[in-house]
Amino acid sequence: TEDEKKIQELLKRANGDVSKAEKLAQSQGNEELARRLREYANK
């Protein structure tokens, strides 16, 4: 999905570090994506 692409892109930029990727999403003002990242990471 589009969200998964965004999540994978963020994870790439954060070198696979979920908490960093989450902070990136939040810094972009994207709380929804940050929440999805957390769920994605907890799979």
Rank of each mutant, 00 (worst) to 15 (best):
N15H: 10
I7T: 02
E31S: 08
S19V: 12
L37R: 00
K43E: 13
E9F: 00
A34M: 06
G29A: 03
R35W: 03
E2K: 07
N15R: 07
S27Y: 07
K6R: 11
Q26H: 09
A14E: 03
I7S: 01
G29V: 03
E32H: 07
A21W: 01
E9H: 03
L10R: 01
E2C: 15
T1Y: 12
V18C: 08
L24G: 01
K5V: 10
A41Q: 10
Y40Q: 08
L37E: 01
A14Y: 09
L33W: 03
A41K: 08
Q28M: 15
I7G: 00
L24W: 08
K23P: 00
Q28H: 07
A34C: 04
Q8K: 15
K20G: 05
K20E: 11
A21Y: 00
E22M: 13
G29H: 05
Q28N: 07
A25H: 00
E4P: 04
R13N: 11
Q28A: 11
E32W: 07
N42P: 09
K5Y: 10
S19R: 13
L11C: 14
L37C: 03
E39M: 03
D17S: 06
E4F: 13
E22W: 04
L37K: 00
A14G: 03
K12S: 10
A21D: 00
N42H: 06
N15L: 09
L24Q: 05
L11T: 02
Q8Y: 10
K43W: 09
E9K: 03
K23T: 07
D3Q: 09
E22L: 12
A34K: 05
Q8H: 11
E4S: 08
A25T: 01
E39K: 03
L10Q: 02
V18T: 06
L10G: 01
T1K: 11
R35H: 07
T1M: 12
Q26E: 10
N42D: 14
Q8I: 15
E9C: 12
R13T: 11
L24T: 04
L37Q: 00
E4I: 14
L37I: 15
Y40R: 07
R13M: 15
V18R: 04
S19M: 10
D17L: 03
K43I: 13
K20R: 11
I7N: 01
K6E: 15
K5S: 10
E2F: 12
Q26A: 11
A41D: 07
K43L: 13
A41E: 08
E32K: 05
R35L: 08
Q26L: 15
T1P: 12
G29Q: 04
E4A: 09
L37M: 06
